[in-house]
């Protein structure tokens, strides 16, 4: 019974290690997706109008007000182009572990 319990404990520890790896992988993926999304460097940023390629992204944090209008201006004059900083990473920042690591 002792050996059986030991064996089960070892399995549980191995499962926990896998879960910890999965957690880290997800945190990393969230971070990378944020970078891709908020810096507007996605390949789908195309209005379909020939010759025009607007970079936009991050409406989930800056809101959708004026969304319609902002796509009639060129990216350089986009009044909603407020840049991107680490405080915008609301998804990553929802993890206290991430916040601690940043600190």
């Amino acid at each position: 019974e002792y050996e059986k319990l030991k064996s089960e404990l070892k399995k549980s520890l191995a499962t926990r290690n896998k879960l910890e790896d999965e957690f880290e992988r997800l945190e990393q993926e969230i971070y990378e997706k944020e970078t891709e999304y908020f810096s507007g460097n996605n390949a789908t940023s195309n209005t379909g109008i020939a010759g025009n390629r607007f970079s936009y992204g991050g409406n989930i944090i800056k809101g959708f007000d004026g969304f319609n209008k902002s796509h009639h201006h060129s990216a350089g004059h986009d009044s909603h182009n407020r840049g991107f900083n680490n405080d915008d990473r609301i998804f990553s920042l929802s993890s206290a572990i991430f916040v601690k690591q940043q600190q």
């Binding site: 409406n59 989930i60 944090i61 959708f64 007000d65 609301i90 998804f91 920042l93 929802s94 916040v99």
Partner: peptide, 27 residues
């Protein structure tokens, strides 16, 4: 659609803020 999602930013900010606060408590 723009009208429908007009509150999404506030909802996300609130929910993700709450998740972080709970996570801090949990830690």
């Amino acid at each position: 659609t723009i009208q429908d999602v007009s509150n999404l930013q506030a909802e996300f900010t609130h929910i993700l803020g709450e998740i972080r606060a709970s996570d801090t408590q949990l830690l």
